[in-house]
Design a protein around this nucleic acid. Sequence first.
RNA 1: GCCUCGGUGGCGGAAUUGGUAUACGCGUCAGACUUAAAAUCUGAUGGUCUUACGAUCUUGUGGGUUCGAGUCCCACCCGAGGCACCA
Length: 831
Amino acid sequence: MQTKVYDHIGIEERWQKAWEEQGLFQNMAATVKPGDDWLYLLFAFAYPSGQGLHVGHVESKTALDILARFNRMSGKKVFFPVGWDAFGLPAENYAVKTGVHPAETTRSAIDTFRRQIKRIGISYDWEAEIATSHPGYYKWTQWLFLELYKKGFAYQGDGMVNWCPSCQTVLANEQVVNGACERCDTEVTQKNMKQWFFKITEYKDELISGLDQVDWPEATKQQQLHWIGKGEGLNIDFTLKNTKVVLPIWTKFWETIFGTTFIVIAPEKFLELELEQFLPSGQAKSVMTYIEEASHKTEEERKIGEKDKTGVNTGLFVVNPVNGDSIPLFVADYVLMGVGTAIVMGVPAHDQRDFAFAKKFSLPIIQVVAYADKKIDQKVAAGEMSFEAEGVLVNSGQFDGMSAWGSGKAKMAEWMIGQHFARFQTTYKLRDWLISRQRYWGAPIPIVYDPEGKPHPVKEEHLPWTLPTDVDFKPTGESPLTSSKEFQARVEKLYGKGWRPEYDTMDTFVDSSWYYLRYGSARDESQFADPEQLKALLPVDFYMIGPEHIVLHLLYSRFFTKFLRDQGYLKFDEPFTKMRHQGMILGPNGKKMSKSKGNVINPDEIIEKFGADTLRVYEMFMGPIESDKPWDVSAVAGVYRFLQRTQAAVLSQVGEAESLKHPEMIAVRRKLHQTIAKVAGDIGSLKFNTAIAALMEFINVYERACREVKLVLPEAEVLAWTQLIAPFAPFLAEELFQSGHADAEPGFASIHLTNWPQSDATLAAEQEFVVPVQIDGKVRARLLIKADKVTDETYVVAQARADAIVTRWLQGTSATARYIAGKIVSFSTQA
RNA sequence: GCCUCGGUGGCGGAAUUGGUAUACGCGUCAGACUUAAAAUCUGAUGGUCUUACGAUCUUGUGGGUUCGAGUCCCACCCGAGGCACCA
């Protein structure tokens, strides 16, 4: 029966070329009309690394491509652009090593990616392609900086910043992971520098509330919330004994304040408040030594103290405002600057850290919350738990007996605020975004300094403020742009003698956090984005992005969106309406793919051997798009077989059609129409794996039927079958659709331009139902019920009772029956 | 410690959201074709007992709700990812 081999190489080359010549799905932005409703599908901005496409890229790109093709066939206008996050460190580091200019490296990497992506048939709109390193793009990145500057959202700040000694640049808080540089894993140090910041904190509350508007994975929302780190607590004034010096503490758990047996202050805060003047002479030396040592510790060293807390008793006492108790003041570096007020109350009975500290320094422990459960009370005494359970206040003066988390907490706050020594204070973890980078391969910050060193914005007519090329790449701790003669000359020519440029470039996250606004106006030189385009295309309807970008990129993108909205440029609050994360494709051994482990699957090799269609369908068939899944070398061949069988089956659809009345024909057509409905539903809910399984089921049914009789389906149904394949295996589908022609004619109508088939409910309807019979919850028999009887409860139950096995099980019982139409007959023998 | 997912055959995974557990694919076994192998095709394939009809057990563990639980509730165990001296 298989007369024609599956020539995947020939098929894929032919149709890639034909589509390209025809410009299929290209330049869609030109067709935007007012009032249009577009489906905007977006893939995470990719960094064009020298490695080329890996199987993970293929997975998420294919998933989006399936959505694009399916929705186009369903009559939607689809915007599906692509671009490159082309500035960044790898190309620059490579330049340092080899001397090849980053522009060169980047261009050839992009060429490789583009060729590979076309080869796997992703139907991107290449007319909207953008690259952040192109002056036509970064002109608008700089424009955005100036907009922020004009509105006071970009400012120069002085202070301690994160410094990566290996990358020789400052880093944003978000780029420091466990005290190390997220890129090179070098330990980050602190450095005092004057740098540019964006005022993202201005939108902190909206960055929280906006999450309610979007359809994102719960975990992603949680992580964003955690990063913003809103904490609602109380500032409570303790005073240094015998002075008027106020030491405000901040706490979320003020209900335990009667249990405070010590106060701890951060070393830096101690100096800031100049408390050293009060130190008793005997104590002064040890305290100052401790503070000195703490200042030399790195973040990592401070964290080692997590188990063994360090600290020093100052010999000073503070007064607890709620009861006038004198309690000792300690300096300890586990209290961090920047969290709350950097002064904490130590309540060892109800906090694990405080407990450890109290044990170490032999401080008293006063329990102020009693728990109904004695076991919890014991745990509290052993320091094993903190705020895990609700209890009743004790040892707390007039608040004794009140609920710790209920009336007690509320009454206590009310009282303390009434006494004027406490006030509500909300704190946030989010800090302003540090965007200066002392690196070359990025967008220059459009700022110039006058001879007095005062910053001025680069005039808009001078944009793009181009990146000079006469630059020494070697990182010296100075920005590489310092070495450019052209840059300096340009500034003096345009702004006057003695002026100098800002030598730093912008964090690449600035480039990549507004790109989705640019696609619709990719070649527009007059504005960052055309308002009509924005209105029709945005916000992004579906965003597919790796889970690694959750905090940085999304937070920044949301900030830009809200800022531009407030300037009147955008009409929406959130840029990404719906978002999902693709899972990771693991090596065949179930481990993350890496060259050193030798478990990397190269997509080019799979394409050579099995074809791009097989690669696409296999990756979609592996499992749910959002979960991590290992590569299975032999399962790929199974998918290849499926495509091969599909080709053979469709190509055999010539000749005399079997009568439509033939039972095998009826069964196959029923399955086909069921499959049409199933595939459309599954694509809609991103269940590509089960959609493909359904297509496999269909061909199984078809081939089985063909063993009885040669089946030639009606033409419309052969077409429908081919169309179902089209989003998944676009090359093969086109080949089957065009198989009547010898070659692609100029102006041929692609299958990808046809209308998605409709399932005929009548043909899809089952004629018989298998109804299981349960007796006390166990399936004992199955009945075959004709469709016209399936709603007839009396009939079905009678059939069930008549069944031999059921009769046996029901003998001597008085069973009651219930029937869920078409689903199940359930007998219960219990009374 | 906290947050978020997960745990189903030898493996990847299905299960219309409370109604036939193990769809589909891989693998394995048997068979056809072949001198042979590969490729391709056909059949079987959760465990235990049984010649068979069939019975019985089975969705991480233990309880519960229900005629009926992979699915809902409670407690716990294990794994992955993220966060964390956050007061």
